[in-house]
Amino acid sequence: MRDEHATRTNLLLLWRPLAFIALLLLLWEIGIRRQASHLLPGPWGVVGGIVDLVRHGLLLKYIVASLFRVTWGFALAVVTAIPLGLAVGWYRRAEMALNPILQILRPISPLAWIPIAILWFGVGDLAAIFLIFVGCFFPLMLTAIDAVQSIPAVYVNAGRNFGLSSAALVYRVLYPAVVPKLIVGLRITLGIAWLVVVAAEMIAVSSGLGFLIVDARNAGNRYDLVVAGMLIIGIIGLLLDLGMQSLEKVKSFRWGYSED
């Protein structure tokens, strides 16, 4: 009896968003049919656009290009910003010295770096990776600083009282204490990386999902490809977020989350 009830709830959970999406698609189609100029595509036009991209072998290519840039830009930011942020957070004086400059650099949109990125790296993968790196570096570093600083002093003191060496203190107290916060930071930052890659590809490269959108604008009346590109960007963004969520399931990372 209970099981049956659970399945029904699950089905409802699945059907409600689907029904809402279907309603939106219907409204979209009606809206398109009512407008006078036929510039914007309807849902079927967009499906046609995606089929077109698949047939020309472009969809896979562009998705790979965008994911490649996000992966490297994000990975480089992770391996630099997190250790640096942890160290800065641990040593109060370093934080006091660096904080003002961090607060100045942080609010600068990564897109403002585009002209400089082109001057330094030309147009190509490197410029796009650099922009994603800049976009991810500061949020990650601030997360790391915050994660260290919010470790309760009692954890550290307890570790010291048990006579842990410095290395053991890092591995057995600090690392598990900061991980839950870092994972939340990583998840948010990956979202930023995905936002930045699309904008960077509109300017600095000739492949990728952002390029797909500018290229479709060049191609004349191909707004079906523009909307197809937007849709694919949204879906991949969702998948990336789901992937990051699965990191939260890693056993030794789990203690910081409440039990479901």
Partner: peptide, 26 residues
């Protein structure tokens, strides 16, 4: 999933996506 496995998966992804990009786009 253990942390070690998570690291292996991330490393494999890095290699896979780089290889695909080098093959398809470069």
């Amino acid at each position: 999933m253990s942390p070690k496995r998570a690291v292996v998966i991330c490393g494999a992804w890095l290699v896979l996506i780089t290889g695909l990009h080098a093959w398809l786009n470069v």
